[in-house]
Nucleic acid binder design. Structure first.
Length: 481
RNA sequence: GUCGGGGUCGCUUAGUGGCCGAGCGUCAGACUGCAGAUCUGAACCAAGUGGGUUCAAUUCCCACCCCCGGCUCCA
């Protein structure tokens, strides 16, 4: 399996430092507003990566943080007259609801910055003790000149970093020993929330939280650290500096950054006011369609949000769902057996083994989900072809297992797909028998060539959200979207 | 400016030194009373521009053009 590592700008063979354990950290949101599609993209990207690593047999310890103290939090809470804690709770709930809707599995650890202030303070003291940090007027700064490797991740020339630092100097400039230095602890300003510390009342800088949480929860050297591409500099650069200065060990082995969601080719962001919240999108499209949309581009590439593309994804989702429900109907009671049995690769029919191989090859290639989707659709066509021709149960069982293996990695597991109306081919005894009654009536009409009446029945049921589909083997129905 | 990512059928997206795969859309056939789903086939005859290497380039090299993004708010 090869992964593109931002640190080396190369595809590298992925080998965890302590197999089968994989430690993985992703930078989560600052919880001052509702999650938008950009957040969803990042979350889904790392969810798929995590699922695939687990599919490959790794034991993934995954952490994703919430930034619940920073300038925007303080600003927003102040405007609304609530505390940052109240603000955080509201938006953490929204974020978690959005993640659940998209079937993004909860991380093993979901730390909040403000819950680890004590750890941050001791982390900063370690940096001070080692001479990498210095205090001025109640704030503490990281001394970039002391850390040789600074700029390695973002490949930024030191001069440029210094220029950037100088521009920022109106806030800390007088105190900073070098323009490149950055705050790891900020002295309290009037009205701001603050914690006691050896340097007086204050709050942590943004970058320190991820270093501390990652180190504390996952260890001094982790396997994978991820986040949006916009975090490379300065956030991740600073994380590396702090962490490695303190531990003397590599902070992270593989850096993975996801591309942005764009709207009309421009980055979706709050400042451009061109964003759509996850809730807004969920009102228009079923969540699995959104998931498929989000994996329709490779995670590093930009993906353009448009009605057209969401519409295409919605059609893809229908195709996936119909293949699944069709398979379940054909397998009947044998579906349970197919579900519980492990995939026996050697026993798979060659064409299905080939699609599974192709799926894995695609995912092994830096999580190439578009290529993986091609394998998924090939699998679906193979299954449908079998269904059309009336193949053996053994073939269908194998098809079911391969399909579920692929869908599981993409985050469309059965329990999730079953949440959506179109997936239901039955709805409890009474409804089932009621619909069956109308189908029988219609069949009688059809046999009598009374197609007018047959179509009326179908239209009436459709109006009630029940869709009939005729086939050689009789009429089936489902709840319409 | 600098660092990075791109320009492949109508749209989206893969792979590849020789015939470019998939999804959506379109058209036609099969199955249907019709519709839907499904299968089969097809069309559109797909590679930013200009050079170079090569028997052969979309794929390698060079130049140029254009697009997008980062550059301490940001997934």
């Amino acid at each position: 399996m090869r992964i593109y590592n931002t640190l080396t700008k190369n595809l590298e063979e992925f080998v965890p430092q302590d197999p089968p354990r994989v430690t993985m950290y992703a930078c989560g949101p600052t919880v001052y507003d509702s999650p938008h599609v950009g957040h969803a993209r990042s979350a889904v990207a790392f969810d798929v990566i995590r699922r695939y690593l687990e599919y490959k047999g790794y034991d993934v310890i995954f952490a994703r943080n919430y930034t619940d103290v920073d300038d925007k939090m303080i600003d927003r809470a102040g405007k609304r007259g609530i505390t940052i804690q109240q603000l955080a709770i509201q938006y953490i709930r929204e974020y978690e609801a959005a993640m659940d809707a998209l079937n993004v599995r909860p991380p093993v650890y979901a730390p909040r910055a403000t819950h680890l202030i004590a750890d941050m303070i001791s982390f900063i003291r370690d940096l001070e003790a080692k001479g990498f940090a210095y205090a001025r007027n109640g704030s503490v700064y990281f001394s970039v000149p002391k850390f040789e490797a600074y700029g390695r991740l973002s490949k930024k020339p030191q001069k440029e970093i210094a220029d950037i630092g100088r521009r920022d100097s109106e806030e800390f400039g007088e105190d900073k020993g070098d323009p490149r230095d950055f705050a790891i602890w900020k002295a309290q300003k009037p009205g701001e929330p603050a914690w006691d510390s050896p340097w007086g009342k204050g709050r942590p800088g943004w970058h320190i939280e991820c270093s501390v949480m990652s180190t504390k929860l996952l260890g001094e050297t982790i396997d994978i650290h991820g986040g949006g591409h916009d975090l490379v500099f300065p956030h991740h650069e600073n994380e590396i500096a702090q962490s490695e200065a303190r531990s003397g060990k590599p902070f992270c082995r593989f850096w993975i950054h996801n591309g942005f969601v764009t709207v009309d080719k421009e980055k979706m962001s709050k400042s451009l006011d061109n964003f759509f919240t996850v809730d807004q999108v969920l009102q228009q499209y079923e969540a699995p369609a959104i998931r498929l949309f989000l994996v329709s581009a490779q995670y590093r590439n930009p993906i353009d949000y448009s009605r057209e593309l969401l519409g295409q994804a919605a059609r893809s989702w229908q195709r996936v769902r119909d293949a699944w429900t069709g398979l379940l109907a054909a397998l009947g009671t044998e579906a349970a057996g197919a579900r519980s049995a492990a995939v026996e690769r050697a026993a798979l029919p060659p064409e299905l083994a080939a699609t599974l191989d192709e799926f894995e090859a695609a995912m092994d290639d830096d999580f190439n989900t578009p290529r993986a989707l091609a394998a998924l659709f090939t699998t679906i066509r193979t299954i449908n072809d079998g269904l059309t021709r009336g193949t053996t149960k053994g073939f269908l069982t194998a098809g079911f297992q391969v399909l579920m293996a692929i869908l599981g990695v993409l985050g469309l597991d059965e329990a999730y797909m079953a949440r959506f109306p179109g997936s239901r081919t039955h709805a409890g005894g009474q409804v089932e028998s009621l619909v069956r009654h109308f189908i029988d009536q219609r069949d009688a009409a059809r046999r009598a060539k009374d197609f007018k009446r047959a179509d009326e029945i179908r239209a009436t049921l459709k109006g009630m959200g029940i869709e009939l589909m005729d086939s050689k083997d009789g009429t089936t129905w489902r709840l319409a979207d």
